[in-house]
Amino acid sequence: MPATDPVVAARPDQSPDLRSLEAGLDALGRRSARRRIPVLRRCLRSALPPLVGGLSVLAVWQLAVWAQLKPAYVLPAPTDVARTLADQWQQGHITGAVWTSLRRGVLGFVVSVVVATPLGLAVARLRPLRAALAPVLSGLQGLPSVAWVPAAIIWFGLSDAAIYFVVLLGAVPSITNGLIAGLDQVPPLHRRVGQVLGARGLIAARWVLLPAALPSYLAGLKQGWAFAWRSLMAAELITFSPKLGLGLGQLLDTGRQLSDMSLVVTAILVIFFVGIGVDRLVFAPIERRVLRRRGLLAGA
């Protein structure tokens, strides 16, 4: 005999015990909300260690200069470099070069994302394409993109096209491989839930697969930016032409041609700080946000 009188038994207000029991369990079982650390403390906590590290490097450098290990034209003092930096800044060379390079880097990166994302999706999902292209993409990721510079110059001449070609070949494999890895790591259970909910094909890609793959895709984007930036510097260093705008790589090469070690070090420092700045200011906050929402960030 099946259960009787379902309607009466089902009235929620007739089972207050269950309701309060459940509320108690929920209160006990819920993870406590994230503790908010004051902004100032957080900034101090994250900025202090790298500051100490940087100052240590500076101290070792200054000690080496005082010890006169090398003549000044080979090993300039930090103060010399600071003076060069200030001079170049006042003449507008630094800001000009930073903008030229940053514009190229960002444009090249955006085009790379536009190319790499559908490519990664296709390679991950289509078996024959994967068999053919996955090893090529892994190989390309290991190939220093500076190796493409001679080919780029022969094909495109000393032009922006040559520079973008090298940047693309640097960034696309990283982004594509990040996306493929992310899609490969989507838990089978999530795929099955998508199926049960009736998501197929592109709908499943939009609502299940791509969001699930996002952390890995972001890691790929971050690496893709690093590769785009270093490829750009390699390309700018070699494709020196008055037709082209003066980027940081070209600034670096000017220093070499003038045997001006201060200028060389200045250019290296600016390249370093722009690269790290984009990573810290653009990618790190996005990554932190994504991981925190998923409960994947330790200590948050």
Partner: peptide, 24 residues
């Protein structure tokens, strides 16, 4: 169909998980 693990999507809030089923 429900599984042993909740298999909720971690990139969505609890409510958004339900809303996704409604959307689909």
């Amino acid at each position: 169909l429900m599984f042993q693990e909740s298999a909720l999507f971690p990139w969505l809030s609890a409510g958004q998980n339900v809303e996704l089923a409604l959307r689909l």
